[in-house]
Design a protein around this nucleic acid. Structure first.
Lengths: 151, 151
DNA sequence: TTGCTATATTTGCAAATGCAACATTATCAT
DNA sequence: ATGATAATGTTGCATTTGCAAATATAGCAA
């Protein structure tokens, strides 16, 4: 070992930086969510439902960026926790519509501020201008890759 | 369903944007790596070793941001693939030093350009100035969270 | 030296994930 | 209608991951 550190991948590769930051943020949110009986794997689905429920599982799948079988299993968990329920679709006998229960709906007020706090904590080293900047740059990359997403 | 889309979490939450982008990038690199018999889980360890080998497993663990037992298992895989070898540590009988084999060393020339191409593809919608900007902003966030990392 | 604590690595077991196949229902062309 | 194909959701099984405990060694204090 020399006393001069060579440049490591985390310093030079964009993908690596994103992976490290993503893992770090997921871990931080997961810890907070555990305090209220949730965990990070449930988060995208719950968040999507707080914004709009009565969705089919495949609509949820696409909004949450998860695999269809993952959605099936997450909903099994969320139903056991009595946070959501599957109701029959009015016109299709194979699809379900997913609704929040009262308990699931109430959770939003507790949970969302945790996530906001988490985001803020990570962004705390940046100026307001820098925050806007990074958000829009990342958004730009995502849209560039998948123009189908609404801007 | 109305014809007006409410704002979804992916549009407003920094953590969500990072998670989506991270998953997307990991998936893209994983696909490329599979063409040459590797996969994304092996990547951080190999990359770290290409930069410097003869590290102990715990040094590798800390550079790769993985769990110690993950390092153990990844090295088992990499040894089976004849890409690395564990050698005894000269002064400690519990530690090992991890070295690339000739085959492992040669792989760098094939693999690293794949990853570079992958990064470039994701950054292709940004101007050179924007690329510098986003890289430095993300770096700043990571450092802010973990000041122990070398800048 | 003895014993206590910390470090380095591995492993057993349970939970989570991914893949591929399945069952069921819709759609659509003939 | 009939049959082929696609969409929706679930499940079995193998692989991966994570936690906690185990093993072995090092370092240090009395």
């Amino acid at each position: 070992m020399t006393d001069h550190q060579p440049e490591l991948p985390r310093h030079t590769s964009f993908g690596w930086l994103i992976a490290v930051l993503g893992a770090d943020m997921a871990h931080a949110l997961d810890n907070r969510l555990k305090e209220i009986g949730l965990n990070i794997s449930l988060w995208p689905t719950l968040f999507a439902l707080w914004e709009e429920d009565g969705l089919t599982q495949s609509e949820l799948t696409s909004r949450c960026n998860t695999a269809h079988y993952t959605t099936t299993r997450l909903l099994d968990s969320l139903e056991k926790m009595a946070l959501v329920e599957r109701r029959p679709h009015p016109t299709s006998r194979r699809a379900h519509l997913v609704y929040l229960t009262e308990k699931g709906r109430e959770l939003e007020a507790t949970a969302v501020p945790l996530a906001k706090a988490c985001n803020d904590e990570f962004l705390s080293g940046l100026s307001p201008a820098e925050r806007t900047q990074i958000q829009s740059l990342i958004h730009k990359i995502i849209i560039n890759r998948n123009p189908a997403l609404p801007s």
